[in-house]
């Protein structure tokens, strides 16, 4: 092992690295928020009385969960322009991430919903709530709480998966690492730093999600 580590040489590229990191954060925040929304809608569609919505949601989940993310990404970015749907790299990257996360979350949230005690739905019905009110007010909040840790893990997986969008030249963290090592050939240092930054992001995400969760799902007595 005659290799001499040279992290100092990376400093020269710290702007590239930080810009990449910032892009990864933006991709993650936007795709997490939209992905959760899509997952909730997908789960709602799964139990809708309209069979088109029900089956459509199921087909969507199966399609996304059984194809590689990179193929989904390439299809959106390289394939769709053939039928006139063009977008920037960042737009395509976000769209692919949202669609991917939405499919997994549809399945996760649906599992939470399936565990709703039937009696609670009946109680809500006898109180006069509509199906929509029951879903939003009665079914969804406890269901989301039941599967919250799985939701968090899936969002982190998508943050890590966002590295793949470097393949369509979105200038995020992995793109930055690729760029730097292609200039100075310090592959070891570049990817190690990128890996540590992903690790840091994952920790931060979990921390933030846990803070949100413990506030949102607190069962401490409320002062009226």
């Amino acid at each position: 092992m005659g290799y001499e580590l040279n992290f100092g040489a990376l400093l020269e590229y710290q702007d590239v690295l930080l810009a990449g990191l910032w892009m990864t954060v933006k991709l993650t925040v936007v795709s997490t928020l939209l992905g959760i929304l899509l997952g909730i809608l997908g789960a709602a569609a799964r139990r809708h009385r309209n069979p088109v919505l029900r089956h459509g949601s199921k087909a969507y989940v199966e399609l996304i969960r059984n194809t590689p993310f990179i193929v989904q990404l390439f299809f959106i970015f390289f394939g769709l322009p053939a039928i006139g749907i063009k977008m920037t790299e960042v737009e395509a990257g976000i769209l692919a991430l949202v669609i991917n996360l939405g499919a997994y979350l549809t399945e996760i949230i649906r599992a939470g919903i399936d565990n709703t005690p039937k009696g609670q739905i009946e109680a809500a019905r006898t109180l006069g709530l509509s199906s929509r009110q029951i879903f939003i007010r009665i079914i969804l909040p406890p269901a989301f709480q039941r599967v919250y840790s799985s939701v968090v893990s899936q969002c982190i997986i998508v943050m890590l998966g966002s590295a793949v969008v470097s393949q369509i030249s979105v200038q995020e963290l992995t793109f930055a690492a690729n760029f730097i090592q292609s200039r100075n050939f310090l592959s070891f240092e570049s990817y190690l730093v990128a890996a540590l930054l992903y690790l840091l992001l994952a920790f931060l995400m979990r921390l933030i999600f846990n803070l949100i969760g413990s506030r949102a799902f607190s069962r401490e007595e409320k002062q009226s």
Binding site: G119, E122, A123, T126, P141, P142, Q145, E221
Partner: peptide, 15 residues
């Protein structure tokens, strides 16, 4: 008409 159930069926996420 109101109804009360054997299993209470209070909504757990609400006070």
């Amino acid at each position: 008409v109101g109804m009360v159930f054997q299993s209470f069926n209070l909504f757990p996420h609400l006070t």
